[in-house]
Design a protein around this nucleic acid. Structure first.
Lengths: 103, 103
DNA sequence: TTAATACTTGCACATATGCGCAATTATGTA
DNA sequence: TACATAATTGCGCATATGTGCAAGTATTAA
């Protein structure tokens, strides 16, 4: 793990490590289809502008992706990328049993 | 996931989401035996007092545990607890194949 | 008992962060 | 066109955070 990878991972964890942003992520966990920003606002009791900024931060860290549809912006999780990074960290801390393959 | 659990997880991720603290965690990943604080200082180019505070933050979030030996303080990772929490989040985002059990 | 070692704590400081409100942009609708 | 809707951006503000230095505490060694 080089310096720049470590920094990227730290940025990702920082993006996830804020209550309202983590709430957004959990909300998106349960969405099979992309959600628009205003709908996501409902899960945090903050101003829409704040949610907008949190979604921007999550987008910049690759946690979510955004697509425009009309005047809406639809957000969805980058499930594979994020879960893989979290598992890689978990594995570095404690190798999972599955990694041994057989026993 | 209730509000307080979500908050705890956010705090954990925030503790991990800082470059120097994450460096400490990675350094401890490779230690089979507990490391003393001054040894850990070497992996961050900051004042010892700063490392001390980072280790305190990691301890408070349950990432590391500390034991005193003479005038040293030995730190080691709470490997199981931390990796389980990270995997739980990863699984919420994208269930791992292993969870399906068979196929 | 004096000095060295291994940390931690108090303090000050600069910067980052989260927040709300108001204004703005972009798109759709009457 | 004029207006409504969806969302973002600019601004100011309060608080949190990371940092270094100096001083303090605890333990060991001389």
């Amino acid at each position: 793990m080089d310096e720049s990878q470590l920094n990227d991972l730290a940025q990702l964890l920082k993006a996830l490590g804020e209550y309202n942003r983590l709430s957004l992520v959990y909300k998106l966990c349960n969405c099979s289809a992309p959600e628009n920003a205003m709908c996501l606002c409902d899960c945090c009791s903050v101003d829409a502008s704040v949610t907008s900024r949190h979604l921007k931060a999550l987008t910049q860290q690759g946690v979510v992706k955004m697509e425009k549809r009309g005047r809406e912006r639809l957000y969805s999780l980058n499930r594979t990328a994020v879960s893989e990074k979290l598992r890689a960290l978990a594995d570095a801390i404690k190798p999972s049993e599955h990694e041994f393959g057989y026993r």
